[in-house]
Design a protein around this nucleic acid. Sequence first.
DNA 1: ATGGTAGCCTTGCTA
Length: 254
Amino acid sequence: MKVASWNVNSVKARLPHLLAFLKESEPDVLCLQETKCPAADFPRLEALSLGYHVEALGQRAYNGVALISKIPAQEIVHGLPGDDGDEQARFLEATFDGVRVASIYLPNGNPVDTDKFSYKLAWMERLYARAGELLRREMPFVLAGDYNICPTDEDVYDPVAFRDDALCRIEARSRYRALVYLGLYDAYRIFHREPNRYTFWDYQAGRWHRDEGLRIDHLLLSPHAADRVVACDIDKRPRAKDRASDHTPIWCEL
DNA sequence: ATGGTAGCCTTGCTA
């Protein structure tokens, strides 16, 4: 089972690139983030024409997540449990052929001296609780998405410049580590040890052409999923296209 | 020191 994750930065703006990725890479489950449209407006007919099912959770203009899959999603959870008052569309979880998969759009958290940062940290506490809940089920799972976390300085093109950014701050990194230390595995790091491998390059200042990016999109595997993983990589091809998202897909094969 | 880009819609906000 191939599971991929991609922050598309508007599913409507990225529809041609999305359809090309589905055709060329044929993921069994594709987790999308930043779809930026209500579920009713998601271009599902285009995905259906390629044989894919669509589950979407969205809102106008911001956020939005989706699960695009060859087989239908089962036991769908809309939204991250733990705060019924949270209206932001950032979490969608379902089962596919015995594997639980979540599409995660973790809050960015900048600027750090605002409630955006405290919201990020509180959201991470809820994700920690959810991961613990899933671990107790003894079922393989993949938490896939845009975590807006650079786990270490090796995941940032300029660690000094980003030292006080919400993506690198110690409070965010320590919560990410706590999540991993529950017993999860960063799929990319099972197969790749090299520093400075990225999934995001800012649109500004020629970051893509200079290969100045961040590794913030992650596939966290449960022990049962890690037992089965045979490959993981970042697919840089979509980022090189015209009118690309600022993120590129990451995938793993179970 | 500033502005640089992209996508949404609110000609500002989020990233």
